[in-house]
Amino acid sequence: MKICSTENMQIAERELIVSGTPARTLMNLAAAGIAESLMQFFPVPGLCIAYVGKGNNGGDALTVLNLLKQHGWEIGFRTAYPRIEWSELSMRQLAEISPPPQ
């Protein structure tokens, strides 16, 4: 397992985005890895509640929820900020969940 500092990860993400990789693609890849790991540790679908911030990390969490829902999980989320303060990408990821959790 490789460990990367927050600063180095931000640099790597910026370089990928500048070179043409959409931020949404990175978000979907990260979420797929997280959801896969969760399902390995918890093979029987259950309930997952995500605590969502207003930035793109919140979008990561929402994307994980969507993937878990597609695999039979019950999902929900709690947020520390009103949706009007969320990043555009996080709002788009919320819209991908059908129907969206309240």
Rank of each mutant, 00 (worst) to 15 (best):
V64I: 10
I34P: 03
G72T: 10
I11A: 07
M39K: 08
G46F: 06
P82N: 10
F77K: 01
A30C: 10
L29R: 13
E96W: 06
L47E: 08
K69C: 13
M91Q: 12
L38C: 08
R14G: 04
E15M: 09
L47G: 04
S19A: 15
T21W: 07
I97A: 02
A30W: 05
L26A: 03
P43H: 14
R92A: 10
P22I: 04
F41E: 13
I97D: 05
T63H: 00
L38W: 08
I75N: 09
I97S: 04
T63N: 11
L38G: 03
L68M: 04
I84V: 15
R14N: 12
S37Y: 14
S19V: 05
G33L: 03
T63G: 01
A23I: 05
I17S: 11
G58T: 11
A61P: 08
V52G: 00
N57E: 05
V64Y: 04
L62Q: 02
E13H: 05
R78F: 15
G55M: 00
Q93V: 07
A31I: 01
N66V: 07
C48H: 07
G72M: 13
E85Q: 15
A35C: 04
E96M: 09
N56I: 00
C48L: 10
L89S: 07
V52R: 00
G53T: 00
F77H: 11
M39I: 09
